[in-house]
Design a binder for these strands. Structure first.
Length: 259
DNA sequence: ATGTCACTTTACAAGTGA
């Protein structure tokens, strides 16, 4: 099974590039974040024409997540029990080929010390509690998406500059660490010791061109999934302004191959 | 830190969030 996770930063602005991505990689599953559209406006028929079923948890203007799949999806679920902000569309899950796929868009947090950051920590705590309560590390589980956390210094172009900042702070990293302690494996790190690769570059200050990136888009799998993992890579070309129709997202897609 | 982008409101710009 081939799965791609990508924060598109508006599915409307990225529709042509998303279709190109599907035709280029032909993934079995595409997990999208930051749709910025309601369910009614989500372009399901455009993806159905390419052979994909859709499970959409949309929201007008902000957030929004979707799963596209060439194979049937069962037990589709939106949100999670205990979400401190259940009105925000940040989680959609489905079972594909016996694997429970959970697609996340984690609260950004804006800056350490703000109320947004405190919400981010509460949200990650609630997510972790839900995962531990409703899932079993012995089952095939794959949690993907925009985690808005760089798990350690290998995931940051300049760890000294970023030390303690939002996306890199210890409190956020502890929350990711507790998911790994529970039994999830960071699939990219099976393939690449780092530093890098990165998945996100700020739009400002020519960050992509200068290599100022972070790895905040992750694929975490239980051992049953990790042992099937043959390849994980970042489609860095997708982040280039020149490599598709219209402008790029600020995130690059993360591609995961399972045996 | 910031050479940006996409959204919304009531709109022909400014504020917000990332």
């Amino acid at each position: 099974m081939k799965l791609i996770t990508w924060n598109v930063n508006s599915v409307k602005s990225r529709l042509a590039r998303t279709k190109e991505l599907l035709l280029r990689h032909r993934p079995d599953v595409l997990a999208l974040q930051e749709l910025k559209v309601s369910d009614e406006v989500f372009p399901s028929s455009e993806f159905q024409e390419l052979g994909y079923r859709t499970a959409v948890h949309g929201q007008s203007g902000r957030n929004g997540v979707a799963l596209l799949s060439r194979r049937s999806m069962t037990d589709v679920a939106e949100g999670f029990a205990g979400d401190p902000v259940p009105d925000q569309a940040r989680v959609v899950a489905a079972t594909v080929d016996g694997i429970r796929v959970v697609n996340l868009y984690v609260v950004n947090g804006r800056a350490v010390g703000t109320s947004d950051y405190e919400l981010k920590l509460r949200w990650l705590d609630a997510l972790g509690a839900w995962i531990r309560a409703e899932h079993d590390p012995r089952d095939p589980l794959l949690i993907v998406g925009d985690f808005n956390v760089a798990p350690d210094d290998r995931d940051v172009h300049d760890p000294v500059l970023w030390r303690g900042s939002n996306l890199c702070s210890e409190a956020e990293r502890e929350r990711i660490g507790s998911l790994l302690d529970w039994g999830l494996v960071d699939l990219l790190r099976l393939q690449s010791a780092g530093p890098g690769p990165f998945t996100w570059w700020d739009y400002r200050a020519g960050a992509f061109h200068r290599g100022w990136g972070l790895r905040i888009d992750l694929a975490l799998g239980t051992p049953a999934v990790a042992e099937r993992c043959t390849e994980v890579l970042v489609d860095r070309d997708e982040r280039k302004p020149t490599s598709g129709e219209g402008k790029p997202s600020d995130h690059a897609p993360l591609v995961v191959n399972l045996r």
